[in-house]
Computed example of a mutant assay.
Amino acid sequence: MFTLGPAEWQAIEVTFRLCLYTTIILLVLAMPLAWWLAKGRSYARVVVQAVVALPLVLPPTVLGFYLLMALGPRGVVGKTLEDLGFHHLAFSFEGILIASVIYSMPFAVQPLTEAFSNLGRRPVEVASSLGAGALDRFRTVILPLTRGGFVVAATLTFAHTLGEFGVILMLGGSIPGETKVLSVLIYDHAEGMNYAAAHSLSLMLLIFAFITLFVVYSITRRFRVASV
């Protein structure tokens, strides 16, 4: 029977940090962007929506390749950082965090955009007419009425980050304690014909994925029933 060793626990720790940081960063970044996409009137929204959704159809290796070119020692970002005395971002945790934020962005922006769209203008207008400031409107009106969208966005972002492989491998490689996440470790086990370890870790991720989808659909159903 396969038991988790130091390499597995190390990969779990790196994966959890990546998922947690990605989720927090994306919720902060996606909130104003989703509000603008839901409430704005600019024709530029279509372009922004297409850019945000691009990771859904773009092969992960393509995104990983271009990020490697940009963040590596010869890239615009990587070379600039090295000229300033810093290290380039390829094959680093910071690099795969940037890649993860970009690759998982649709899973945070789209649920929040739908939640803000379903909110309508009336609750916010009423709160504004009663003298509530922007922060009060968000805290007492917008957040309670759209909390389902935030939960779905956070859950999907965390789960999607957990399963990222191609973009991580292209940009980060397989460095223990730095860029070797669970998906990459499973690949390494399979490549080394250690199928027992690969099966155990894959089964663990499969169960987690099922639970995540069950939670998301349950939350979505609950809030749809509540809004009827």
Rank of each mutant, 00 (worst) to 15 (best):
F214T: 07
A159E: 00
A11R: 03
L54A: 15
L81A: 10
A209S: 02
L33P: 01
G173W: 11
Q49F: 14
F116Q: 05
R222H: 14
L112D: 01
L162H: 09
P6F: 05
M69G: 06
T15F: 12
T113C: 07
G133F: 13
V151T: 00
V76M: 13
T23W: 00
R122Q: 13
A197N: 04
F223M: 14
I142W: 04
R45Q: 15
V57N: 07
L156H: 00
G192I: 02
F210Q: 05
R45A: 13
A99W: 05
S117W: 09
I219H: 01
A11V: 04
V28A: 08
A190H: 07
R45K: 15
L26M: 12
V51R: 04
F116S: 02
P123Q: 13
G40F: 05
L89C: 12
T113G: 06
E178N: 03
G163M: 03
L67Y: 08
F2C: 10
L97Q: 06
A154T: 01
L97P: 03
L156F: 00
S200F: 14
E191Y: 08
V62I: 10
A11F: 03
I96P: 07
L63W: 04
K79C: 12
V109R: 02
L203Y: 14
V126Y: 05
V151S: 01
M31P: 02
C19G: 01
V28I: 14
A38D: 12
S202G: 11
R17N: 12
A50G: 15
A38Q: 10
L171P: 10
S100H: 11
P32W: 15
G173M: 11
V181K: 03
V216P: 00
L71V: 13
L182E: 04
A127R: 06
I102K: 08
D188E: 08
F107R: 09
G95S: 05
P111R: 05
T161A: 08
L203F: 15
T146G: 02
I142L: 03
A7H: 13
V167I: 15
H87W: 04
A198S: 02
S129H: 00
A34D: 08
F65C: 03
L26P: 03
A34Y: 08
A226F: 06
G149M: 01
H88I: 03
L29K: 07
T161C: 15
L54P: 10
A226Y: 09
G78L: 11
V216W: 01
L84E: 00
Y21T: 08
V77T: 01
S104R: 10
V28E: 02
L37E: 00
R224C: 14
L20H: 10
F223N: 12
T220Y: 07
G5F: 05
K79S: 15
A38L: 10
L203N: 13
R121Y: 09
R74A: 12
T80I: 12
T140N: 11
